[in-house]
Simulated assay, not measured.
Amino acid sequence: MTESTGLEQMICFELYAASRTMTGLYRPALDAAGLTYPQFVTMRVVWHRGRITVRDLGAALNLDSGTLSPLLKRLEAQGLIRRERGTDDERVVWISPTPQGAALEHELADLPRQLGCTLDLTPEDLATLQSLLSRVRGAAATTPNRRETAR
């Protein structure tokens, strides 16, 4: 029997550990494709939207520009995306997949389903889990940071 650490009673730790474990499941396939997990989820949004502004991409990924900009530079250097300034407003930067980036979509399209099948969960369990995690994210996003409210 495993000795208690006290962490097993913390939902935040279970979410953290589960996230790291899931990301680890993706690693072999993503390494072979030359992507990190953050690059993969970024490309998933770009593939889904086709063309998206950096601002909207950041919102979709819940990433600030300081985190997103270097990630986009690496994807552009790999030839997977194209960044273009808006013609009406040069402050707006549009992201779109290159032909090479679009080809990668077909290579990795089934990856989430394949990895979902490796878990010992029914389709109903997976749907419930996804719904609960979405509710947790939504609730956490609207909860004020205690440090900020204490000031």
Rank of each mutant, 00 (worst) to 15 (best):
M1V: 10
L129A: 09
A59P: 06
E3L: 09
T142R: 04
E90R: 13
T143F: 01
R83Q: 13
W47P: 01
R20D: 07
R74K: 14
L72R: 02
G24S: 13
T122S: 14
L71C: 11
M10D: 08
L133M: 07
P97K: 04
A139D: 03
G50L: 13
A109T: 05
T87K: 15
T128G: 00
P70V: 07
A150K: 06
R146C: 05
Q9Y: 03
T122I: 08
Q39F: 00
S19G: 13
L72I: 10
L75S: 01
A60P: 07
G116D: 01
R137G: 06
R74E: 11
T36G: 11
L75E: 03
R113P: 00
Q130E: 00
G116W: 03
G50T: 12
F13I: 07
H106T: 11
R113N: 00
R82L: 14
A60I: 05
H48P: 00
L7F: 10
G58A: 13
L80E: 01
L115G: 12
L111W: 08
T5Y: 01
D31E: 09
Q114D: 03
P38Q: 03
A141T: 02
G66Q: 14
I11G: 01
N62S: 14
Y16E: 13
A103V: 07
L15I: 12
A18V: 08
R44E: 10
Q78H: 08
I81T: 03
G116S: 05
E124P: 00
R151P: 13
L104I: 03
P112Q: 08
L111V: 10
R147G: 06
M1F: 01
R113Y: 05
A127W: 00
G86C: 15
L63V: 10
Q9E: 00
R74H: 11
S131D: 09
A102R: 13
D31H: 10
V93S: 09
E148F: 04
L72P: 01
G58W: 01
L119Y: 12
F13E: 09
T98K: 04
P99D: 08
L30H: 11
E105S: 04
R91F: 10
L72G: 02
R55H: 15
W94F: 15
A18M: 10
M43L: 15
M43Y: 07
L35H: 05
R49L: 11
L119K: 05
Q100P: 06
G58F: 07
F13L: 07
R135F: 04
T53M: 15
S69E: 13
P144V: 05
N62C: 06
A59N: 14
C12D: 12
T142L: 04
T122F: 01
S131Q: 08
H106Y: 08
G138I: 03
V54Y: 09
G116M: 02
